[in-house]
């Protein structure tokens, strides 16, 4: 019996328990829907059919999971030393803006030279956007949650400004977007779907995150800070450097998500390149307990919900908000469950 209890608490079972909690959230939402006279099974069937009923649905789950994975990493990396980066949305837009600048000014370069440059610009843009709150936190003690939230608004507005002002496509009849990128600036799409090379970026980023965290000195020090920041300082670990480092690494990945969105999905910069990917990414990271592998799983789960959410509306006339409720409840249940403090990996 005692062995069973230990097993139930062991790390190996965490995914299983997460799944159980997710199911719990579905039940709760089911009750909510019943209260409003809607059939929850029909709603879940629609979500399921939307995401798994066709290869297109499946491919869209992946398309959606790409920015979510990267934005989740943007939250998870700083979270490993206890920083709460809610700025994924702004960092994504900053990365998109930087990549757009590259695509518009260096569009004449051949693909092999341009694309790596755009990737670098995306990373840099996101990192720059994260550097501001990181420096504010490090130098003046300004709380990073608040500053990243405020910066989200600023950066999104900056995108609105450039696409309607200096970068507006002169041939667009005054419509708010930049000129279309040249072919050399576009990421490849695969298999006739919208799945794009951003998938490899995301997977490599997650794998690197996992590797650095577990196998390098940086990762070790990050884990030490995460466990006990005071002890870390006493042990001579430079806390400030890690604040800057983790925030910028996170921001860079969100920026990469932005780069992938403009270079693969949109092929130009315009308002509305993200439907709250930054915020949903924050959710993904927390659902995954900031664990790299968990992020992949949870990004896919939320991808399923988003893609399925359209079906809920098209087939049943239920508001898309239904899936937002499901997402929020899963978040609550996981947050409230006992292993919230568990630090894995």
């Amino acid at each position: 019996m005692a062995r069973l209890a230990r097993l139930a608490d062991s790390r190996l079972l965490i995914p299983v328990r997460l799944l159980g909690l997710t199911a719990l959230a579905f039940v709760a939402v089911g009750i909510f829907l019943l209260l409003f006279g809607k059939n929850p099974l029909a709603a879940y069937r629609a979500i399921f059919a939307g995401a798994f009923g066709s290869t297109y649905g499946l491919s869209e789950v992946v398309v959606r999971a790409i920015p979510l994975m990267l934005c989740a990493a943007a939250t998870a990396i700083p979270a490993r030393i206890g920083l709460l980066n809610v700025g994924g949305e702004g960092q994504l837009h900053a990365g998109a803006m930087a990549a757009t600048w590259g695509a518009l000014t260096l569009g004449f370069l051949p693909r092999a030279a341009l694309l790596p440059g755009l990737v670098a610009l995306g990373l840099l843009g996101g990192a720059a956007a994260a550097l501001v709150p990181a420096v504010l936190r490090w130098a003046a003690g300004v709380n990073e949650t608040i500053s990243t939230l405020l910066l989200n608004y600023v950066i999104v507005l900056l995108v609105e400004y450039v696409v309607r002002g200096p970068w507006k496509d002169p041939l667009s009849y005054n419509w708010p977007f930049t000129p279309e990128f040249s072919d050399s600036a576009r990421l490849g799409l695969y298999w006739g779907t919208r799945i794009h090379a951003g998938l490899w970026f995301a997977l490599v980023a997650i794998a690197l995150f996992y590797f650095v965290l577990r196998r390098t000195r940086w990762g070790y020090e990050v884990r030490v800070i995460g466990d006990n920041p005071e002890a870390a300082v006493r042990a001579g670990i430079p806390l400030g450097r890690y604040i800057l480092l983790t925030m910028c690494a996170g921001g860079a990945l969100a920026g990469l998500a932005g780069m992938a969105e403009v270079c693969a999905i949109q092929s130009r910069l315009r308002p509305g390149i993200s439907t709250g990917f930054g915020y949903t990414g924050f959710l993904v990271s927390w659902l995954a307990l900031h664990h790299p592998l968990g992020i992949v799983a949870m990004a896919v789960l939320l991808g399923v919900l988003s893609v399925g959410g359209d079906q809920v509306q098209i087939s049943l006339g239920l508001p898309y908000a239904t899936v937002n409720i499901i997402m929020a409840l899963i978040f609550f249940v996981v947050l409230g469950s006992r292993f919230r403090a568990a630090r894995t990996a």
């Binding site: 409003f36 959710l283 927390w286 908000a321 239904t322 947050l335």
Partner: peptide, 16 residues
């Protein structure tokens, strides 16, 4: 995190 979770939940419930 709990505050943000609450924000998400309220957004969903009120939209519905």
């Amino acid at each position: 995190a709990s505050g943000l979770a609450l924000m998400f939940l309220c957004l969903g419930v009120t939209s519905f």
